[in-house]
Nucleic acid binder design. Sequence first.
DNA 1: AACTCGGGGCA
DNA 2: TGCCCAGAGTT
Length: 217
Amino acid sequence: MKKKLSKQRVGKVIEILENHYGDEGCGLDFRTPYELLVATILSAQCTDVRVNVVTDELFKDYNTPQKMLTLSQQKLQEHIRSCGLSKTKSKNILATSRLLLQVFDGEVPKTMEELTELPGVGRKTANVVMSNAFGADAIAVDTHVFRVSKRIGLATGNNVLQVEKELMEMLPKSYWSKAHHWIIWHGRRLCKARNPECPECPLKEICLYKDKTVAEI
DNA sequence: AACTCGGGGCA
DNA sequence: TGCCCAGAGTT
């Protein structure tokens, strides 16, 4: 039996998150489509803070497919070492850059189908590019968004597709991008997968998950 | 659905 | 030391 979601409640949750976080934690949405694509590939199993440190340096000289391909895989691997999984990621970034030049005329494609064809680009990365770079009607659901949305009562689904659909239904489109950031930031800072800091949480009065000390989601 | 990739931050 | 991290690909 699914719990019913109320738009009124959702509005309250978003209002609280906005007042609490505002412009904090505006991670990966300020780059060009290519930079955003590369940064998001790098973000797998790695915190946004580390991705930003690495890409701030990397993109000074290598912010297009052409420039990226002047790097050997070995050299790129050294640049992105601290993001982890650097062997796979460097290989995928170079293969993707090659495909962009050979198949997509040097541009980042604008459909989910084409994006997910690129090596190292899965549903989540494609979604981030579609929504953040091209303003498409999409909300990227990662582990934080999935967990936090369910805890604070923005979604009830049991997979990312359901949660994505619910969030798009429950949130005004003008808030999709901002809400996405707030939810992720909240998941990093307080609503952590394990040992969430509920006493510090601005949502503790209305959260469905309050007072839990062990993660169940 | 479960497993692997992986270096660095933090307890 | 051991655990964890804005996922993707393979089996």
